[in-house]
Design a protein around this nucleic acid. Structure first.
Length: 236
DNA sequence: CGCTGATCATAG
DNA sequence: CTATGATCAGCG
């Protein structure tokens, strides 16, 4: 029985190439969360209320992601980040996509080229997941994956937003930034709860305690990625 | 019903 | 406590 347990319940070995990773992801298209969970011997939560990252973590195991909770690309050797994308019946993203947290005391010193946002988004494997409220959680299926890097237009758009937001934070205006800023990239809280504080910098350059923030991609941005893909599939 | 601000689980 | 994985829930 041991061979069986290993074959069924162990995380997959890390993929050795983009093509191998993509092939694995494509093989999951149409597979439901319940089916995949069964292969790994885990039970499907009743809802995501207390299991918000469950789908992403299940997929990490199935695809052989290596980073765990370390600040590394999910597929270290390949430099690829994995993102699940909850979509409605029409394929439209239902949520924003978390990109990375913001080092409040450093972001004012960094150029876009070396930013965490740019590095994170340099190569992303997007995997759509059905997320209609009417669908039982276990029955929701994975969609066709998209291995993406920003084209020059997308990068310019992200850079524009990042430079405004990073610039403001660097100027000590963090407290005045809301989720309203940024056309594609926005800044929102990222914490266990609203009482969490992190060291930041105020307008005078002094250290202050501030709620942790993260960069997020708006659903309109990820929708456009999927649209491009569906319009011109069959490219890796 | 979209969007922003708040929140939840788990690993190291 | 900080990093990862995200979605929840209420207001406009």
């Amino acid at each position: 029985m041991e061979w069986f347990a290993r074959a069924m319940f162990e995380p997959k070995a890390a993929p050795r190439s983009e093509l191998e990773l993509l092939a694995r992801a494509r093989a999951l298209a149409g597979v439901s969360l319940g089916e995949l969970a069964l292969q790994f011997g885990v039970s499907v939560p009743e809802s995501q209320l207390r299991a918000k990252g469950w789908v992403g973590q299940l997929l990490e195991r199935a695809l052989g992601a290596t980073a765990g909770s370390r600040a590394k690309p999910d597929f270290e050797g390949l430099g690829i980040e994995l993102k699940t994308l909850p979509v409605d019946a029409r394929g439209k993203p239902k949520e924003s996509t978390f990109v990375c947290t913001i080092a409040l005391t450093e972001i004012g010193e960094v150029e876009w080229e070396h930013s965490r946002v740019r590095r994170k988004l340099a190569r992303v494997l997007w995997v759509p997941v059905e997320a209609e409220a009417s669908l039982p959680f276990a029955g929701r299926r994975f969609g066709e994956p998209l291995l993406w890097s920003p084209d020059s237009e997308e990068e310019a758009e992200l850079r524009f937003d990042w430079e405004e937001l990073a610039g403001r934070i660097g100027m000590g205006e963090l407290e005045r930034i809301t989720g309203h800023f940024g056309k594609h990239l926005q800044v929102r809280p990222k914490a266990a709860h609203s009482r969490v504080r992190r060291r930041g910098i105020d307008e005078d350059g002094a250290y202050v305690e501030a709620p942790p923030r993260g960069f997020y991609l708006r659903p309109s941005f990820t929708l456009r990625l999927l649209r491009k893909y569906y319009a011109a599939p069959a490219r890796a």
